[in-house]
Computed example of a mutant assay.
Amino acid sequence: MGPIDAFWHLLNLFLPAAGLGAVAAAATKLLWRQETRGLAWWRLAVPTAVAAAGVTVAGLLFYGQDGRMATYGAMVLAAALTLWWRVFLRRR
């Protein structure tokens, strides 16, 4: 595998995590406007994407392959917990 192929493989591995982080942060900003008024969108999206990427790597190590439904479910759970921590628990 050449370096360009490796780049595309890594990009496709972490793209679902980045997309989930972006969409979940946007939905959080839309649904909880009062609670997220002082938070920038990227301050929600980046930690959420990092948490989802960590779950992706953990799922890859645990199952030996990526793209398992259990890994995607764990990514959604990690994104929800990260946003909950950033929006509701961090302010107190």
Rank of each mutant, 00 (worst) to 15 (best):
R91N: 06
V76Y: 11
F7T: 13
R33P: 02
G2N: 15
Y63Q: 14
A51W: 02
L81C: 12
W42D: 11
A40W: 02
L44T: 07
K29Y: 09
G64R: 08
L44Y: 00
N12P: 03
H9F: 10
Q34L: 07
A45F: 01
Q65T: 11
V87M: 07
V23K: 06
P3F: 14
A49E: 02
L31S: 13
A51Y: 04
A51N: 06
R33E: 10
R33A: 13
A22L: 15
L77Q: 05
A22P: 04
M75C: 08
A22Q: 04
R92T: 04
L61Q: 11
W41G: 06
A18K: 02
A74D: 04
V57H: 03
R91Y: 04
W84L: 12
V57E: 09
L13F: 07
T36N: 02
L13A: 11
R90F: 08
L44M: 09
L44C: 09
R90K: 14
R37S: 08
P16M: 13
R68P: 00
A51K: 00
A6S: 09
A58I: 13
A27F: 14
L89K: 14
W8D: 04
T36R: 00
G59F: 01
T56P: 05
V76D: 06
V55A: 09
A17T: 08
L39K: 08
